[in-house]
Design a protein around this nucleic acid. Structure first.
Lengths: 138, 138
DNA sequence: ATTTGTGCAAATCGTTTGCATCTGA
DNA sequence: TCAGATGCAAACGATTTGCACAAAT
């Protein structure tokens, strides 16, 4: 049923090198995750995958271009990469800089989109629901 | 009908200094704009308002905290400040890094939001419709 | 053998900060 | 007067890049 990581990379036009395969095994196992380059690098090194931060960045972008990941922008500083490539939206926990999927199963949807402007097409509609601890606690 | 920029700053608890007033005049004239710190700095200098980039950053953040501006995160790198503080959403033109308001008049709305998690409250729901030139052109 | 990927360190980009100097109330 | 604001340059964090070396086809 499932292609090996090697084959998925090949199909995506990426040579299955050691580090790509290793990172792919961490990311493309079907779990829904949101990683930063930094965090993935730490994780890889901890898993005895010798890889440089620069290569992690390269790999994340290559995977994203290949449609294996999706990049999510929530705050001006760091970038998050989402292993869930299907249509879904996010909660963003402001005080802890954390991103959570709003499952596809949720009935969330955007209604009443106006006409798309002149010669443009929609690549994606991002919905981010920003959350903070309720009331008292701040 | 309209408060002067000076008074709006005073009301917001900000001392109406030269540069705040000058930047306020550029930003708070009722036009809907999306500026980056860099762009605003260039604009200010061009308008013979001697102000440093650091002060532009400070001012943008102070205005944002005071509710005079809203910060919009669309891509991992730079921050945009929106002079339209009311409830509305955005188009983001990917290939030219440009942000456009989807007017409040549009019937856009988000339906079927799931229960907000445990002890959290929504600060804001951001909708970004990402656009690129249609079909052929790329 | 040739092409493509990788690691490292240096470079870049946007943004923030420390601190001496100014300025508005 | 003097708390608060500003300017500058240096510091910073995240990301990118240049180039010599290594690995995949």
């Amino acid at each position: 049923m499932w292609e090996s990581v090697e084959n998925r990379l090949r199909i995506a036009g990426l040579r299955p090198t050691r580090q790509r395969v290793a990172l792919g095994r961490l990311l493309l196992d079907g779990r829904d995750r949101h990683v930063t380059a930094e965090a993935l690098h730490v994780e890889a090194v901890a898993a005895s995958i010798p890889v440089s931060l620069a290569t992690v960045y390269n790999t994340l972008h290559q995977f994203t271009e290949a449609g294996l990941l999706r990049e999510v922008a929530v705050n001006g500083s760091k970038s998050y990469f989402d292993t869930n490539v299907s249509n879904h939206h996010h909660y963003y926990i402001e005080n802890e800089n954390r991103l959570i999927d709003i499952g596809e199963t949720s009935s969330i949807r955007v209604e009443g989109l106006p006409e798309t402007p002149h010669g443009m097409e929609i690549t994606h509609v991002d919905v981010v629901v920003r959350l903070r601890p309720a009331a008292g606690r701040r």
